[in-house]
Design a protein around this nucleic acid. Structure first.
Length: 595
RNA sequence: GGCCUCAUAGUUCAACGGAUAGAAUAGAAGUUUCCUAAACUUUAGAUCCAGGUUCGAUUCCUGGUGAGGCUACCA
């Protein structure tokens, strides 16, 4: 039983014995810094059950707690807030109970059902960009947080490897590529494909312009440009299984996958299972037939199939075209069901997709619920805001994108520059340095993106880039590195304090704050999982680090004359380091031994 | 037009309906014989507007204003 549960029980007892009333719950909050005390009971909500003056009630409950519990050594009441002072002994013995745990903050698997987390899901016609980075970081981190809070997780992505947009880059390469290959040009495969996607658009636009000059109206010109007609022809051939087209498709996709794999490796994300749209795009049609039989869907006169969601406040939505081919929705219904066939223990799914698709997922989830799948109750759209540049929206066709690989390199270079200016890495080999620059550069980028609430848009200014000071990844990494330095010098060896020995220590106020923060870590992980929010973990870690830095500045850890206190402080520093590392793992950020 | 999201110091972010709205940056002023100064300390500065709900509203509701998104037999 933790402190809050214990206090909650005792407060209820107090209310029962003094006022003969039953409280359903007790509200706590950490005591504000400017008041004396460690944990605060909010009396106001009790007024619904107990008539009286909040100050008086607070005093009576406080008196009761003080006599009943050794942990509570004092209290004061201000307005409706009962501030409890908790003795050092509680914190030292709590710390003793967690200091040797290797898995502190990670909850053991308690849910039989697994959660499938989908993220990334790129098109295979162009390289990954900044928007994908946000998607990948969010998806990966949420998967890690769900794991840490006691869920089995499958990470997946669906690769959009078919369709007209894929044919566009294939076609442009076929016409203008002169047989270029990644090996021949030295370009990453995804970059090469991306070049021809842009090329298609240029040629297409020129053609459209020419047609308009020849007197066609805009819509007709856009529809009849030869380049587009050729791409459509290519798609028909692909769907018919034309050997030449399929081979080209395989070749170019192969290049792109290789390029993506490199970017994923650099970014530190991975997947347990891949789905390819080319293999799943026909799924879902049989479900539509079933749904028609059940009266969930209906067929219009032209043969197209729809669902009426007006009762739920939404529109009517098409689920199958008049010609019997699938739409996006059909496929998504089909793949969701397929995933549960592949992994029967799936009890829920998380879709990491940008907020422009909010409506789509609302509809998708509703349809799956109507179809009666039990897991449909636990679907979550991890929706995130766009990453904007100062000039506005990124447009891949116009080449105004921030490329993922370029950005990672740029961050690494900035880290190297700052690091060299500070000149702390004497004695490190070039290889070790490069590795460290990468850890720091990526740490800055990842933290910068993950600390923001996913819903909100991010304005990304490549010039100003990302900070390395203040509430940033490197700041936290730096603190971690300093702790490691302390541990190297402390040579703790076999020295350990027992519960009893530690009990005699008078805690520095900052130490108490640090232990309180450590105490709240497991709860923070749970909360982050419930809210699918890496930002909570990021901000928690920052609080912990800030508190530790402030402590570190005020007292000497290794220089403390009294052995007992020195050992305790080193152990505390060690634990802070472990929690930083653990929390950063949940964000997918590495932590350096030195920097 | 309809629907959805967002709006907090100059800037970037916080705040289960709780106390005097927290940080960071940029500004001003300090702290290195000592465990890593990528640090620490001090200082000034903000809830888009108008109503409502209640002991209490940045948070919930209504109406505005501003920004973005969705509103395809595209994915």
């Amino acid at each position: 039983m933790n402190l809050e549960q214990l206090l909650s029980k005792k407060v209820k007892e107090a209310v029962a014995s003094i006022y003969d009333q039953t409280l359903p719950s007790v509200e706590f909050q950490p005591t504000r810094k400017d008041f004396e005390g460690d944990i605060t009971v909010v009396v106001f909500p009790m007024l619904r059950y107990i008539k009286g003056n909040p100050v008086q009630i607070g005093n009576q409950i406080g008196e009761h707690l003080k006599t009943e519990l050794d942990e509570v050594i004092g209290f004061n009441v201000i307005k409706g807030f009962l501030n409890l002072v908790i003795g050092d002994a509680y914190y030292t013995s709590f710390f003793d109970s967690i200091k040797d745990s290797n898995t502190y903050g990670r909850h053991s698997v308690e849910n039989e059902n697994a959660i499938l987390v989908e993220y990334s899901s790129p098109n295979t016609n162009k390289p990954l960009h900044l928007g994908h980075i946000r998607n990948n970081l969010l998806g990966y981190s949420v998967a890690e947080i769900l794991k840490a809070s006691g869920n089995k997780v499958y990470k997946t992505q669906i690769i959009n490897d078919r369709g007209i947009h894929i044919c566009k880059s294939m076609l442009a390469w076929q016409i203008y590529g002169n047989g270029e290959t990644p090996e021949g040009t030295g370009l990453k495969g995804d970059k090469l494909a991306g070049i021809y996607y842009v090329k298609f658009d240029q040629v297409y636009k020129t053609e459209v312009k020419k047609l308009i000059e020849e007197g066609k109206d805009k819509a007709t010109a856009e529809r009849e440009a030869p380049m587009l007609l050729k791409a459509q022809e290519m798609l028909r051939k692909w769907e018919a299984g034309d050997a030449e087209v399929v081979e080209l498709w395989k070749k170019m996709n192969g290049w792109v996958y290789k390029g993506f794999d490199e970017t994923y490796a650099n970014l530190g994300v991975n997947f347990d299972k891949l789905y390819y749209e080319s293999e799943t795009y026909l799924l879902g049609k049989d479900v539509i037939a079933e749904g028609i039989a059940n009266g969930i869907f209906y067929r219009k006169e032209d043969g197209s199939v729809w669902i009426d969601l007006t009762e739920e406040g939404l529109d009517e939505k098409i689920v199958l075209r008049a010609d019997g081919t699938a739409v996006y929705m059909t496929q998504d219904i089909g793949t969701a069901i397929q995933r549960v066939k592949d992994f029967p223990d799936i009890g829920g799914m998380v879709y990491t997709v940008g907020n422009e698709q909010d409506y789509h997922f609302k509809v998708l989830f509703l349809i799956l619920k109507k179809l009666g799948y039990s897991w449909a109750q636990h679907l979550y759209h991890l929706s995130y805001g766009m990453v904007d540049l100062p000039e506005g929206k990124m447009k891949s066709r116009e080449g105004t994108v921030v490329d993922a690989d370029d950005l990672i390199d740029e961050m690494t270079n900035t880290a190297a520059k700052i690091s060299q200016e500070l000149g702390k890495l004497d004695g490190y080999s070039e290889e070790e340095r490069q590795k460290l620059y990468r850890i720091i550069g990526l740490g800055a980028l990842k933290y910068y993106i993950l600390k923001v609430d996913p819903k909100k848009r991010i304005l990304f200014n490549p010039e100003e880039s990302v900070d390395f000071q203040g509430n940033t990844g490197p700041f936290i990494q730096y603190t971690y590195a300093r702790i490691q330095s302390i541990l190297r010098k402390a040579d703790l060896g076999t020295k350990h304090l027992t519960d009893k020995q530690a009990d005699g220590i008078a805690l520095h106020p900052k130490e108490k704050e640090i232990i309180k923060l450590l105490e709240s870590y497991p709860e923070t992980v749970k909360l982050a999982a419930e809210n699918y929010s890496p930002a909570l973990i990021a901000n928690y870690t920052y609080d912990l680090v800030k508190e530790f830095n402030s402590f570190y500045q005020q007292v000497s850890i290794l220089g403390e004359p009294e052995e007992k206190i020195r050992v305790f402080r080193v152990q505390l520093a060690k634990k802070v380091g472990e929690v930083i590392k653990s929390a950063f793992q949940l964000l997918g950020i590495e932590v350096p031994l030195r920097m």
